[in-house]
């Protein structure tokens, strides 16, 4: 059985761990809207605030170049920081970058490594909770979009997506449709049809 639960509703009489769960007197309650799967005994948040996890890809904008570090705006509660020696050739204010999260430092800032500057194009903001749907299982969804539109796409788990080249408007429409229809069945096929019907025009 799968049930949608909202903040405050009981998930289980037992203690559970994971995102979107709070435990009180040994019982587990939802702190965000999510789905509880009683067979797998797991709770999957449907809406959430992104928090950086080690190894994740993020997309952001350099907003301050300091002596030894660069600050990165990740359009989220978390700021990013890149240590200058990890940025070969240097970075400038306003550069759009893609990078990997190494972890959080003591002050709650996301330490980023392997920055890559993304030139040209534009960014769009997608709810971080919908990013897994945009990627699709085994990245099938996003691959399908970039194959059809010939658009280069970088997806940040922080909810910032970079697009450049090709039919960028069609790629944008497809990603925004995934965001608004993330709960619909057979979405990969539906987006495929949308892309094909646009290609013919």
């Amino acid at each position: 059985m799968r049930t949608i639960l909202v903040p405050g509703e009981l998930i289980s009489d037992k203690t559970m761990h994971g995102e979107g769960i709070i435990v009180e007197n040994g019982k587990s309650y939802a702190s965000v809207i999510g789905i509880y799967d009683s067979e797998r005994q797991g709770f999957i948040p449907l809406e959430s605030i992104w928090s950086p996890q080690q190894g994740e890809n993020v997309v952001g904008v350099i907003d301050e170049a300091k002596l030894n570090t660069y600050n990165v705006n990740l359009h989220s509660p978390y700021k990013g920081v890149i240590i200058s020696k990890y940025a070969e050739g240097g970075l400038s204010n306003g550069d759009i970058i893609e990078a990997t999260v190494r972890g959080l430092d003591k002050t709650g800032v996301a330490v980023l490594v392997r920055p890559r500057v993304l030139r040209g194009g534009k960014l769009i903001s997608i709810k971080p909770s919908k990013i897994p749907r945009v990627l699709g299982r085994g990245n099938t969804m996003i691959k399908q979009i970039s194959d059809y539109t010939k658009t280069s796409i970088s997806i940040g788990m922080n909810g910032v997506v970079w697009l450049n080249g090709g039919d960028i408007d069609l790629a944008t429409d497809a990603i925004e449709r995934i965001q608004s229809e993330a709960h619909i069945t057979g979405l990969t096929e539906k987006i495929g049809e949308m892309l094909k019907s646009n290609e013919k025009r």
């Binding site: 705006n73 359009h75 040209g120 960014l123 903001s125």
Partner: peptide, 13 residues
Amino acid sequence: MSIKMITEEYVSE
């Protein structure tokens, strides 16, 4: 804090 999602270069091209 808000982030500039688009560059002038992109719009003008």
